[in-house]
């Protein structure tokens, strides 16, 4: 019985955090603020809820699976949030310098994106860009330098 009471306390905390998460995505006005609420539910809510279930299951293989779920979420959720923030910063065209810096006296960061993204030139992503022609040009240039080096 006392096991059930402890587990229920943990699970109720988890449910309270899930409810706060849903209130958060309705009361906050901007995506990057909402993402904070969502990430809180993904990590703290899952942790409390799964700890409650682990107490119920006791020492068994099911508990190990739940621990694996917690570990996976604590690694995966920040990565997903990071990529979503990157998408938001890239796709926001209202105020490109909004994310540069808030502190006075500091110089503004350069506008994102720059000429490369992850080492790939930006023109590669263009759908109107003739990729085949660019590859051929690069091959020709490389062949030219190779030939020049030999000569």
């Amino acid at each position: 019985m006392i096991q059930f009471i402890f587990a229920a306390l943990f699970m109720i905390s988890g449910l309270v955090i899930f409810t706060l998460e849903v209130f958060g995505i309705y009361s906050l006005k901007y995506v990057l603020n909402r993402m904070h609420a969502a990430a809180m539910g993904d990590t703290l809510g899952i942790l409390f809820f799964m700890i409650g279930l682990i107490i119920l299951y006791g020492f068994s293989w099911s508990s190990l699976k739940l621990v694996l779920v917690i570990a996976f979420f604590w690694m995966a959720s920040p990565a997903a949030s990071h990529l979503l923030c990157q998408l938001e910063v890239f796709s926001n065209t209202d105020n490109p310098k909004k994310y540069a810096t808030d502190r006075p006296g500091e110089p503004d960061l350069p506008d994102v994106p720059e000429t490369t993204w992850g080492g790939v030139p930006l023109e590669r992503f263009s759908i109107h860009h003739d990729v085949q022609a660019q590859f051929e040009e690069e091959e020709r240039r490389e062949a030219g330098t190779h030939h020049a080096g030999n000569g």
Binding site: V22, I25, V31, D42, A80
Partner: peptide
């Protein structure tokens, strides 16, 4: 971004 975040939740 809102929609993808909600799908995640």
């Amino acid at each position: 971004t809102d929609r993808i975040m909600a799908i995640n939740m």
